[in-house]
Design a protein around this nucleic acid. Structure first.
Lengths: 160, 160
DNA sequence: AGCATAAAGTTGAACGTTCAATCAACACCC
DNA sequence: GGGTGTTGATTGAACGTTCAACTTTATGCT
């Protein structure tokens, strides 16, 4: 039941909103899970790794600085360091000192990394299409985009 | 570019669909992250733990069998075992043998667990409201519910 | 009944993420 | 121009999830 309640009074959700939230949570869980599993079993890549490769592949010189990667993917710097370290060990990415900023490190996609990405992309895109895009009415899909974009904007630069 | 390409030909996404997918991914990442962090810092609970408590609290006798929990949350059995073990150690949940099925184990929310949940709910619900519900046009929100519900149904009982 | 198979749950190791601490390079500024 | 604070990146430990075994109990078949 709503109203004056706790620390500061809590905006309880009505039944419809609760339903949306539950569907959202369930759908997201199952979707991310499946996409991740597909990439892992078929290409030995996690979704996080795959997303990094995508960003790198689109960037000029196929390279991006660590902090920018972190910001773009909303991952912690530490996570990016660990992940890039793994990718480097596997010859998918290389790391080098940034010339303009002595602290900076730039990650670049290797040629091998690029071909790995090319192959993985088929799997991933098929997944996104089959599990999400094909399930949804196009107008609903657009709504999903709007909502989540606005969520991201509302939350960006928080992280404490 | 589309068409005859790979293993079996891949249904590439157009620009709008890609945009939706990117917003989706970014929004989900940042949203889940923030909700999780809120619960962790203020109540020492992960979202996964919180979700378990919610389900238990709604069930008759505040108890559910492990496998049902796993199915309801789309988590692996193993994950449920570990998580419940932690919650049991903290006195939030208790575990006992199921009478009807010799293999079965039932988890029940303790009284203490219930009060923990009551407090955490304020934080969580406020988060869902502020970060998601308040950001979105109600019609768009309904669309989100429809889409993700259909995603879940399309994918349920996969897990291999 | 008796054997094979499946389902429920647990276990421990491996892996990936988080968190706090650390170090180096840059920026400011008085 | 030498503190003071900030930003970029890394490190290692702690934590949580996954994965592949494994145990136990139930189910199905003939």
């Amino acid at each position: 039941m709503p109203s004056t309640d706790a620390p500061t009074d809590t905006p309880w959700l009505d039944a419809a909103q609760q339903g949306v939230w539950r569907s959202f949570l369930g759908g997201v869980t199952v979707l991310m899970d499946q996409l991740d599993r597909d990439l892992r079993t078929q290409h030995d890549l996690s979704m996080a790794e795959y997303e990094i490769l995508v960003r790198l592949s689109e960037a000029p010189d196929r390279s991006i600085r660590m902090a920018e990667l972190a910001a773009a993917l909303a991952h912690s710097r530490s996570r990016i360091t660990h992940t890039i370290a793994r990718l480097e060990r596997d010859g998918i990415v290389e790391r080098f000192q940034c010339s303009s900023d002595g602290r900076g490190v730039t990650a670049r996609l290797t040629d091998h990394g690029f071909t790995v990405l090319e192959r993985a992309a088929h799997t991933h895109v098929r997944g996104v299409h089959d599990y999400l895009v094909a399930q949804a009415d196009p107008a609903d899909l657009a709504a999903v985009g709007r909502v989540l974009e606005s969520v991201r904007r509302g939350l960006e630069g928080r992280h404490f």
